[in-house]
């Protein structure tokens, strides 16, 4: 998998940390056909995204191919501190994976 497929930012404001992440992934449903050859493009999409900080799981996302190409994900949590490390990782249906770490700012 291409390096650095994840762009992530986490910002703390009034005790609530907002995490925004952008992943680079084709997110093929497996139902689309190649216009030229007429062959079905095999499914290739992120199935699971997990985000944790300080050994605590913050969010687990299970996705289908119905999530748009180059998926965007945003969520909020309480109890984060500035400088805390936060890790986001994904695994797709082909077993490829990537993860990124960011400091809460």
């Amino acid at each position: 998998m291409a390096k650095k497929s994840i762009k992530i930012r986490a910002s703390l404001k009034d005790d609530v940390t907002t995490v925004k992440a952008l992943m680079t992934h084709p997110m093929e449903t497996g139902a689309r056909k190649d216009k030229k050859s007429g062959e079905t493009i095999p499914a290739h999409f992120i199935q699971e995204v997990t985000c944790e900080s300080g050994g605590k799981n913050l969010l687990t996302a299970y996705w289908s191919g119905g999530v748009s190409q180059n998926p965007y994900l945003s969520f909020k949590f309480k109890g984060g501190n500035k400088g805390d490390k936060l890790t986001l990782s994904w695994v797709d249906n082909k077993g490829e994976s990537d993860s990124a770490e960011v400091e809460i700012g």
Binding site: E52, F77, K78
Partner: peptide, 21 residues
């Protein structure tokens, strides 16, 4: 029909944002 399912950890707010097809 099911596009995404999120499990929220402790302290995570009831808020998720995604782009779907």
């Amino acid at each position: 029909p099911l596009v995404a399912s999120y499990e929220l950890g402790e302290g995570t707010e009831g808020f998720v944002s995604t782009r779907i097809k």
